[in-house]
Design a protein around this nucleic acid. Sequence first.
DNA 1: TAGGCCATCTGGTCCT
DNA 2: AGGACCAGATGGCCTA
Length: 224
Amino acid sequence: MIEFGELSERLGLMASFTTDPNNNSECSSEKNSKRGEKYSLRPRSAKKRHAEDDSEEIISIPSKSSKSKTSRAKQKPAPLSKYRRKTANARERTRMKEINQAFETLRKVVPQMTISHQANEKLTKIMTLRLAMKYISTLSSVLSQEGDQQDLLPSASDFDSLWLESDGESLPLDSDFSDHSLTHTDFSIDFPDDSLTSVDFSSALSPDFSHHLRQFDPLLSGFS
DNA sequence: TAGGCCATCTGGTCCT
DNA sequence: AGGACCAGATGGCCTA
């Protein structure tokens, strides 16, 4: 079991909780929250929360027609205490942070793509997932072709038959390495929203490819 | 200004 | 009981 102090230290809670050790449920939700400001509710949420806090102090007689919190409390379990709500939020942020870190890792593993419109922008989450699926599919395809051969790493000529496959569709990669890009038309199968006009798969065709392949090897060993 | 993307909050559900 | 996970709601930021 994690002590509050330990949890708070881990999650950086202490700054926004009061220093009163006897009152863990107090927090600094009064200040307007800014992104990145920890453990303060957004203005709207804080307003709502305060309204709920106020209503909790009112003892009302439950009635059928009433939609007050007090009447609803009879049917639903009591909302989390401020303290538990804060810690739950902190855990949720941590969880999302880990997911985002995994996305960052994935962005680094998939070949760098060049998107003409947004050349300097990082891939969105959905784009990252889609490209990863394509990349895995490509590697799988290459490995299956190389299955009978000793050398698993593809030679340059192997890329003449490198395909990007998705949902039964096959997208041929340009075998001319001086212009290894997919056209917008090619990619429109998976990106019908015109978000891509060209995709540069140069890293997949470079020596780096073997590095990527080795990284994926354990995952792909079960394919064949 | 609308739409896309994202972070955060929140309540519900499941699990330990 | 409390944590993990999930999805909906909300609002901020950015770009076309």
